[in-house]
Nucleic acid binder design. Sequence first.
DNA 1: GTCCTGACGAGTA
DNA 2: GTACTCGCCAGGA
Length: 110
Amino acid sequence: MIRLMNRFEKIYAIVSSIPKSKVITYKQVSDIIGIKNPRIVGFALHKNKNPKKIPCHRVVHSDGTLAKGYAFGGPLKQKEKLKKEGVSFLNDKKVDLKNSFYSILSKSIS
DNA sequence: GTCCTGACGAGTA
DNA sequence: GTACTCGCCAGGA
């Protein structure tokens, strides 16, 4: 049950469930978890302890721009990763959400 | 317990 | 379209 998990646990669960070549927004994640502040999502990812399990690079802002504080190589690295996975970009700073957005089946995280 | 900080979002100018 | 401000919640000291 997702409700029995800590906020961070939920965030990690959701982010780690994002499939390859897909991205999701902080807004979406926070909405799924039930918190009103997307900032918590970023905060959680910042201090995440399982970088290899948490594809933080697949989490972007609501407008498709990349996170400025990506802690595992920087935004540039993040962009490269996404590109290599097949995520389409509108330009150098924004991902094509309408094409690569991950419509999470939410609550299935349990 | 309190205070400060933080990977954001939406609204306004 | 860009820049700035305010609000929001949770974690860590």
